[in-house]
Nucleic acid binder design. Structure first.
Lengths: 343, 343
DNA sequence: CTGAAAGCGCTTACAG
DNA sequence: CTGAAAGCGCTTACAG
């Protein structure tokens, strides 16, 4: 049981207090704190008892001053459009990373670099060594921040595959192409042949790779690729709505549509409803992400599940490994087709 | 321009380097860093130039070690049900606080205390002085964490009014009662007389106060309060759906319903649609929050806007003041009726 | 296995 | 206004 200091902040016990109570030197206490190597069981025992008795918690500032590590991680969101915050996927990711780090007793610093000014300030903060590494979440990958951090030698893991080639940056991503393939195969299996697509932004991996998967499966199935059936979106609900509208104009005989995000698919549902098309009877709709938007939509969306829990866990794992000296790594995680009412 | 260290992390410059370049003592550099009092303009100048030249950034760990302050703030989320993360309001709040703090150059540490274990760990972390203060966001206020922090003398601001009386905790909240009054008055002005309500949880201020506002206005208007027209919800979409369903059973003649959150209102729309009621023709629906859910709903929700930007700004302001020695304070912010298509 | 000692980078009285 | 010096709480070689 820790001592409760009622009212006012009492000066917390230091390693010196622990040493005195345990009847050992401060060096020995420190050794116990740092893994217990080269410490006799008796001393170990005495120190642990003293820690419990005094309610001692290590002063991280003092420790960091000497180790040069901060024992904290930055979660950096670069979002020119302030959009990512509204993305339901972002929440899952943030929560996942927070908890994965908490399991290692590492605090997460949330940093938002929306403007050029903020970007500069945060870069200085990071490169001054105030965090040991960075979990980077940006919308349009190929972000200059990623390169800057890498060039400054800051351990870094990106969420999603970086667009810039040979950038030598760690990342964790779902298998976009394979997920898209699963969805389009599913739509074809329903007998649909006029399958439209609303892509993501084509300067993002999710934009490019999901489109690639779509085209591949169609080609493999001997279905001709019709460019009128392809429009690009921006991952926003409004973008999905506009995209579906355009598709209906250009290809009124469309009987299915693969929309590259659930949020956009939600917008597409609105456009289809307005156009008098029944979902899934007239047009089957497939989304991507399996975010909250998928279950909230009416009808609920058939979609491709991105394993966000695993993604955040892997991001943390890879980052900690890199901080520990390992080389950068890329992790691609499998997706899963989730069947609901929209197909 | 700061020096770019390409590849590998070079040892950052210290106050000693700056002193040497500026031709002054480290004490003088420190004084410039800390407000520039008792420093001659010449020295001031020389130091600033040296800082620019060396790219010096203060080592916060060393500073914290001596000042006893951490110069960071914790954003603590206590959520037994992991629910808050999905709440669209939460995002706005988190982003607002992050940016308000960034303006003061103060990093925000995100902490999630979902389980008893996490709560314990985080309490130790906080009381050990690793943050200077805490922004507390909890669903059910009257949270034991708030009391523990207050008793430990940790500066603290809660989002939303604490339920426990006389708790002497700072908080920032929207005016729930007044907002509810505005909404119900609006519904009455439409000529509706059978106005139902789906409340929030009655162990939260938003639950209690919005209900109070509802009853007051009805009474003032000479409309009898019918308990069949009141059901309680849990702020979830599903809860709103179930609530509206129950209301329709108990009071089929209901011609309007005030739902205590947009998310619940979204659920209520689903239930109404299923029951064949047109919104707003048959039943007018009013929400609360003006969250993303309000504009995403079909029809878009008439609602009460909570000024989340101001709330987060005020939370930060009050917390920093309290850290600076001021007494706790309560801030109640006005709400605003936002008219859309559901009424 | 253990203690004494140096030192991490800063701030802050203390003299001047 | 300024410098020299002490000290914040820890870790880590260095002897033993």
């Amino acid at each position: 049981m820790t001592m409760s200091n009622t009212g006012g902040r009492r000066k917390p016990p230091t390693i010196h207090d622990v040493a005195r109570v345990a009847g050992v030197s401060r060096g020995t206490v420190s050794r116990v704190l740092n893994g217990g190597h080269y410490v006799s069981p008796a001393a170990q025992e005495a120190v642990n008892a003293a820690i419990r008795k005094t309610g001692y918690v290590v002063n991280r500032h003092a420790r960091s001053l000497i180790t040069g590590r901060s024992d904290s991680i930055g979660f950096l969101l670069t979002e020119p459009q302030e959009k990512l915050f509204e993305d339901p996927n972002f929440n899952v990711l943030l929560r996942g990373c927070t908890q994965a780090l908490a399991a290692h007793d590492i605090p997460l610093l949330l940093m938002v670099a929306g403007t050029e000014d903020e970007r500069r300030r945060i870069m200085r903060y990071i490169t001054a060594g105030h965090v040991d590494g960075v979990l980077l979440v940006s919308s349009h990958s190929g972000d200059p921040v990623a390169e800057q951090l890498r060039d400054a030698g800051v351990p870094l893991v990106q969420c999603g595959k970086p667009m810039g080639l040979g950038s030598k940056v760690s990342y964790v991503a779902a298998d976009d192409r394979d997920g898209a393939r699963d969805m389009v195969r599913h739509l074809l299996s329903l007998g649909r042949r006029r399958v439209g697509m609303v892509t993501g932004p084509l300067d993002t991996p999710g934009g490019v790779d999901r489109l690639a998967g779509y085209k591949e499966v169609l080609t493999e199935a001997g279905v001709e690729i019709d460019e009128r059936l392809i429009v690009s979106g921006d991952y926003s609900r409004a973008g999905g709505e506009a995209g579906a509208e355009r598709l209906l104009e250009r290809a009124p005989d469309m009987d299915a549509v693969f929309v590259a995000s659930d949020l956009m698919a939600q917008g597409a549902l609105t456009a289809l409803r307005r156009a008098g098309r029944r979902v899934p009877e007239d047009v089957a709709v497939g989304g991507f992400d399996d975010s909250a938007a998928a279950t909230e939509s009416v009808p609920a969306l058939t979609t491709i599940r991105q394993p966000y829990d695993r993604i955040s866990n892997e991001m943390v794992r890879v980052l900690l490994a890199q901080i520990g000296g390992e080389d950068p790594a890329a992790v691609i995680l499998p997706t899963e087709l989730v069947l609901r009412d929209s197909t």
